[in-house]
Design a protein around this nucleic acid. Structure first.
Lengths: 143, 143
DNA sequence: TTGTTTTGTTATCAAAAGATAACTAAAGGA
DNA sequence: TCCTTTAGTTATCTTTTGATAACAAAACAA
């Protein structure tokens, strides 16, 4: 409830994470991509290979809209669709070399910014942070 | 860099926070609001009173678009604009009682969901989490 | 075999969000 | 005073995103 200080911290923390990650990826996103397209690419990057239905589910998009955006990304040569041999309705979607290169570049630039916040820390402090990330992901931010 | 395991954790963690908070607020957002309008309302809630310029900056929106959305929110009776006495160009924007009630209700429902993840923890574990939130916000996710 | 479900596509329309130009009014500085 | 900057508004246009209907093909179950 409102009286719960932990909840307030949770809200403030989530807001901070959103703001920081937005700022970090802000002028790093490829211009050729819309925000939604970038999100999809990022999702594929960490989950590939993945089906259209899975993208649709995880990103709360309708199948028609997901299909449309995937088509645009494919037309830009960023994705590879491969029909599943066992179930020919399904297609495994993954990044093409060009798509992978694009995502890698974005991650590299974000990593630079993050490392600006980590660089001056001692090894012990880094381990504290790593531990804190693990703890929160295990107890609160699990999927 | 890619070789940095801390960075990978950072990426995974940020993604998890985004996904969880999206899911938590998903069907809790008032229907009368568009996603952007809800985001603005949430921002005002934690920062009020705030100026249009500040909203525009922090949310990466142009002033004209910010102005338009604020007008819509004001028309719905959710905001109060009060001209600054010292600088009559600026206006302090805050939530009206109706706006505050709406945000409170959303927060209350999100809190319920969060507490589902906290309820079974011991007091000691909660303090660990609280400490982890503080640490990360201080070292990584600061604004 | 015949229906039914799952997976995905195409087309179309509506709403939301972004971009830009042209403007007002107050503040501040020379 | 006059010029410039800052804060915000209005109007208009484009792009992006969301929603829905109608469809095809593969899988599956009776």
């Amino acid at each position: 409830m409102d009286s719960n200080p932990l909840f307030k911290k949770f809200v403030a923390f989530s807001a901070a994470v959103h703001q920081i990650t937005n700022d970090m990826t802000k002028d790093v996103k490829p211009e050729a991509l819309t925000p939604v397209q970038y999100k999809i690419l990022e999702y594929i990057a960490v989950s590939q290979p993945v089906t259209l239905s899975e993208i649709s589910d995880c990103m709360n998009m309708s199948m028609p809209n997901t299909s449309r955006e995937l088509r645009k990304l494919t037309e830009q040569g960023l994705l590879i669709k491969e029909t599943d041999a066992e179930d020919r309705r399904r297609q495994g979607i993954s990044l093409s070399p060009a798509g992978q290169a694009m995502v890698d570049e974005v991650f590299r630039r974000v990593a630079q910014r993050v490392s600006g916040r980590i660089a001056h820390l001692t090894e012990e402090q880094r381990q504290e942070i790593e531990h804190a990330l693990d703890l929160l992901q295990e107890r609160i931010f699990y999927v």
